[in-house]
Amino acid sequence: MMENAAVAIEYRNVSKCFKGAGYNAVDDVSLSINEGEFITILGSSGSGKTTLLRMTNRLLDPDAGNIILFGENICDANPVQVRRRIGYAIQQVGLFPHMTVAQNIAVVPKLLKWDKERIDNRVRELTELAGLKPDEFLHRYPAQLSGGQQQRIGLARALAVDPKIMLLDEPFGAIDAINRLNLQDELKRIHGGLKKTFLFVTHDINEALKLGTRVAVMNEGRVCQFDTPENIAKNPADGFVESLIHSCRQQEKFWEGLV
């Protein structure tokens, strides 16, 4: 981890309770994330991991606590301005079917009124970064892409205006195992080259430990442990983390039994 790195994201006692629910979906979470880190948030469904992510770009507002991005408390900021500075990718990708690949990537640059030449150059650059040939793909519609290709474009679109922070909500959740491994490697490569802060939500422990420079394990709205993958594997903080590691080991045994 970098010394003296700026704090990119800080959650201060953040809680969120959905209407009608008797419990907190996110319960008094405090985390401090440095610039350039690749943070994975690991948890099962209902653990509050997606809620925490969606509060970071103000798709949801916390009921208590503050979220500070690079020293700015976003709870007081204009949500639209906050979102334009943050990359956002989701499992369903959400490419707009009536726009070509190029138009999809250009959405946020156009919102920010970039000139045409700058947009064109950026679109080509990003398509290449996502591992696809611009001349072959730019004029296609999303329906003409495979699931993996769509998610590559989804990531390119999220990176379009070079945001310092990227929020990724199970982006590889619907992709087959082989493509997922490739995409994980490429995401790691992209992160390494850009020095951005990535926040990656997943329920897959292997994915979380493989990608994260640090991993936040969440259960029932709380962060059980926030540490490097090595430390989590060696010293699980509580019974829940231990049971996660245990489930992984079980799988290993199952594989050994097969071979």
Partner: peptide, 28 residues
């Protein structure tokens, strides 16, 4: 699809932009 509107919003479109650039074209 709700997730598509959510993606549009999450990218920083204003409510009016979500309507004009995503919702109406999809309804056409």
């Amino acid at each position: 699809p709700p997730f598509m509107l959510e993606a549009a919003k999450g990218m920083g479109m204003t409510p009016l932009q979500v309507w004009l650039r995503v919702r109406l074209p999809l309804a056409l």
